[in-house]
């Protein structure tokens, strides 16, 4: 049965859902809610989470020694290796369980890895691919804020075209980043033995449901969470949810899942809004909008989004009831 907000509030009225107060993420950041939504779901379903973090906003801001904003077992190793690290933890769990050395063997352990888009799309991709291919039972969640925000907004493979970054700025001559965002969902879905889904905190029920599926899936899961960075997307502190809604309504961030090759769009948007609305709502595209070629760049993005949306529907239809294994 799908969880709802009232149930979760009742359950967590007087306890922390894995992550606690006192972290130093920017006001209005979406990342702590990504962690909170995922871990609340796990705990409410009777799982005991063990979390690994890649270096990034969520990591540095929650564990400044001697302060930790986690009340569950937590390990950070480095930037590019959270998947390998949690694969070691998960393997140790199996080894110790076999040898009767688990402290509390009756509990259901759930292994989570959180990484930003830098630690996932870019520097951590090999480690992630390896861990998923090996089939470790873990849930990898990327909080995708479309750049290296922890270090001040550098370009990543997840940065969209025309977004202002410090390492590929929109200049007088060059238009900034022109490449499309890497399609991490398709990359991960190509690993065969995996449950892959996109989520957004603006659709909490869909988010909870997908974490539940990921927990119950017999194998690794990869969840891409849209995670606005209010600071470097140049929006007001209270806009993370508004921007997320707009991303879904424009088709910029389609909500869907791929389970053993079967595609399913979980949020059908009747008529997509123009992506320009998403772009105009954020200061990070201000310099792009000033350029004479703005319409051309936005037009190309629009065309891509429209085609991807159509393609998703085709895939949904074509793969219906035809799991690949």
């Amino acid at each position: 049965m799908a969880l709802n907000i009232m149930q979760l509030a009742t359950m967590f009225a007087d306890k922390n859902p894995g992550i606690t107060q006192g972290h130093r993420l920017c006001p209005g950041c979406a990342a702590p809610n990504v962690a909170k939504f995922a871990l609340m779901t796990a705990e409410s379903l009777g799982y005991t989470p063990v979390v690994g973090l890649a270096t990034g906003c969520l990591e540095v801001s929650t564990t400044i020694f001697p302060y930790t904003a986690w009340n569950v077992p937590y390990i950070h190793n480095a930037f590019e290796n959270v998947a390998a690290t949690i694969s070691g933890v998960e393997t140790a769990y199996r080894a110790l369980a076999k040898r009767g050395r688990i402290v509390d063997p009756d509990k259901k352990y759930a292994f989570f890895a959180f990484g930003g888009d830098g630690g996932t799309y870019d520097i951590g991709l090999q480690s992630l691919s390896g861990a998923v291919e090996r089939g470790h039972k873990f849930i990898y969640i990327v909080y995708d804020n479309e750049g290296y925000m922890n270090t001040g907004n550098q370009r990543s493979g997840a940065t969209p075209p025309g977004s202002q970054t410090t390492t590929q700025p929109v200049g007088k001559k060059l238009p900034g980043k022109i490449q499309l965002k890497k399609n991490i969902v398709e990359i991960m879905a190509g690993h065969e033995n995996v449950y892959v889904a996109t989520v957004s905190t603006s659709e909490p029920m869909d988010f909870f449901k997908k974490i539940e599926k990921a927990l119950q899936f017999d194998g690794p899961a990869f969840i891409a969470a849209f995670s606005p960075c209010v600071r470097f997307w140049r929006v007001n502190d209270d806009k993370a949810v508004d921007i997320s809604k707009l991303a879904i309504e424009t088709g910029y961030w389609p909500l869907y899942e791929v389970e053993r090759g079967v595609y399913r769009i979980t949020k059908k948007v009747k008529e997509l809004k123009p992506v320009k609305e998403f772009i105009e709502a954020q200061g990070r595209f201000r310099n792009l909008l000033k350029r004479p070629d703005a319409d051309e760049i936005i037009g190309e993005l629009q065309e891509y989004i429209t085609r991807r949306w159509e393609r998703l529907h085709i895939l949904e239809e074509a793969t219906k009831d035809k799991p690949i294994r």
């Binding site: 690994g52 590019e80 070691g88 110790l96």
Partner: peptide, 28 residues
């Protein structure tokens, strides 16, 4: 042996995984 072996995709991941395993409480 009944060791759990992780056939990692690189040495970087080998060391990363044994760090995870050792932190978890395993002899790695």
């Amino acid at each position: 042996v009944d060791t759990e072996m992780i056939p990692v995709e690189s040495e970087h991941s080998a060391m990363s995984a044994v760090v995870g395993a050792a932190a978890a409480g395993a002899r790695a």
